[in-house]
């Protein structure tokens, strides 16, 4: 089955207001094109989840798309403060999001539990800290402390997460959705597989035969996938290993713009509402920053020796 469609169609068809979304990425491969489309279509009341969130989540919060955030961290790191996130929590602009906080061990484990069909998992972190003293929309289901049935030791259980839709950006996929990724993974594989259905954004669509030449790189199988979007440069200003580098200039530009509500809105007008799709976004980028800067982001190339699966 051919699941190839535009990002507009993928988000229109599969992301409803109020949906529970896993959105992948870890500086590596954030599905920014999908994030822009969610903002463009003014989706509302979303619950979003990912470990170590960054600029994409900040933008979704600032644009008013998010109601609930299952979080571990949100920072723009090197660029500066995550202003939309702070404005939401500190001053309720555009509204105060509800926050359920975990850590970069417990949250990936919750996605892993979701992916494996388990109801919960024990983890060894978070105990003894105030992360156990604050509960939000998950209430008493945020976690349970039990005595281990094996040795009586205090044991923290965290619930499985099963987002309705997982959205990830990868290097390549076939038109049915077999998705291949390499490089730093974050919680992408578990988050996608925990989800009921998956939207794959990819740098290139390849044939099923190409997938079969290196099947160990497939992280999501076709049967979980409902949409495949070929979206070159789709993770910008994040990076995709083998395709393009992080765009530090543009990342700083977003941070600077988002220091004020007006600046943030002007940024959205220029880069999100003012462009119809990723092609226009790239055109705008080249007009503004120049073709030289665009080409500078292009990754170098180094071959990994081909592997053989033959017998």
């Amino acid at each position: 089955m051919n699941k190839v469609m535009s990002m507009k169609e993928a988000i229109e068809t599969h992301v409803n207001d109020g949906a529970f979304l896993y959105i992948g990425g870890y500086i590596a491969r954030p599905p920014f094109s999908a994030i822009h489309e969610i903002v463009r279509q003014k989706k509302r009341d979303l619950t979003v989840v990912r470990s170590n969130a960054a600029d994409g989540f900040d933008m979704l919060i600032g644009a008013g798309c998010v109601k609930c955030f299952i979080a571990t961290f949100l920072s723009l790191g090197f660029y500066g403060l995550a202003r939309c996130y702070r404005r939401s929590i500190e001053s309720g602009i555009p509204h105060k999001i509800e926050l359920e906080e975990y850590s970069n061990l417990s949250l990936p484990m919750m996605l892993m539990a979701g992916a494996l069909g388990m109801p919960f998992l024990p983890t060894k972190d978070m105990v003894g800290t105030d992360l156990l003293n604050v509960k939000s929309f998950m209430g008493d289901n945020k976690y349970k402390m039990i005595e281990s049935p094996f040795d009586g030791s205090p044991t923290l259980l965290v619930p499985a997460l099963r987002p309705e839709v997982g959205i990830i950006h990868v290097q390549q996929a076939d038109e049915n959705g077999n998705a291949q990724m390499w490089g730093i993974g974050g919680d992408c594989q578990w988050g996608a597989n925990a989800s009921d259905k998956v939207i794959i954004s990819c740098e290139r669509i390849v044939s099923r035969d190409v997938i079969g030449l290196d099947p160990s790189r497939t992280i999501v199988p076709d049967f979980k996938v409902v949409a495949v979007v070929e979206e070159p440069f789709g993770a910008h200003p994040g990076y995709t290993p083998g395709f393009y580098d992080v765009d530090f200039v543009f990342g700083s530009h977003y941070q600077q713009a988002s220091n004020t509500v007006e600046g943030f809105e002007a940024f959205l007008d220029e880069w999100v509402f003012g462009t119809a799709d990723r092609i226009e976004y790239i055109q705008r980028y080249i007009e503004k920053y120049g073709y030289g800067q665009f080409k500078n982001l292009e990754a170098g190339f180094g071959f990994s020796p081909p592997v053989s699966y033959e017998y």
Partner: peptide
């Protein structure tokens, strides 16, 4: 996580990320 009160913070900080599990383990 926060400077001040959790529900009405003076400053909202990034959160745990990997810090809690690293400090725990």
């Amino acid at each position: 996580t926060v400077i001040g009160n959790y529900d009405n913070p003076k400053s909202r900080l990034p959160g745990s990320g990997g810090a809690n599990p690293i400090g725990s383990l």
